[in-house]
Amino acid sequence: MLTMPVRQLGETERSAVMRVLDSDPYATAQVAERIAVHGLSWWRSDGRIYGYGARRHLESLLWSGAHLTPILATPPAVEAFAELVAGEHRVCSSIVGRADAVLGLWDRLAGAWGHPRDVRPNQPILATGELPAIRPDPAVRLAENSEIDIVFPAAVAMYTEEVGVSPLADGGGGGYKRRVAELVRSRRTYVRVENRQVVFKAELAVVTPHTAQVQGVWVDPAWRGRGIAAPAMAAVVTDALGRVAPTVSLYVNDYNHAARRVYARCGFRSAGTFATILF
Rank of each mutant, 00 (worst) to 15 (best):
S270V: 05
H210T: 07
R260L: 12
V198K: 04
G267T: 07
A234I: 04
L241D: 07
F200V: 13
I228C: 05
Y263P: 09
Y255I: 06
F268P: 07
E203P: 04
D239C: 01
V244D: 01
R192W: 03
A235V: 09
V219G: 07
V262E: 03
R226C: 09
N253P: 00
G216E: 09
P231Q: 11
L250M: 06
G267Q: 02
A229C: 12
V199W: 03
W223T: 07
Y263M: 07
F200Q: 08
H210L: 04
A222F: 05
A222C: 09
V207T: 12
F200W: 12
V191F: 03
T211P: 09
R196V: 04
R243W: 01
R260Y: 06
W223I: 06
A259L: 07
D239Y: 10
G225D: 12
P246C: 08
N253M: 10
V248R: 00
R260F: 03
F200P: 02
L250I: 05
V217L: 11
D220T: 03
G272V: 10
H257P: 01
V217C: 08
S270Y: 13
R243L: 08
A234S: 13
L204A: 15
G272I: 01
T189F: 00
V191G: 01
C266K: 01
Y263N: 03
V248N: 00
T238H: 08
E194D: 15
G225M: 13
A202N: 02
D254Y: 10
V262Y: 00
I228W: 09
K201M: 14
A202W: 00
A232D: 10
A258R: 14
T208G: 05
E194M: 14
L204G: 08
R188L: 01
V262S: 03
R224S: 09
Y263K: 01
A205C: 12
D254W: 06
S270M: 09
V199Y: 03
H257M: 05
V207W: 02
P231W: 10
V217H: 00
V214C: 05
V191D: 03
A202H: 02
V237N: 04
A212C: 06
G227Q: 11
V252Q: 02
P209A: 07
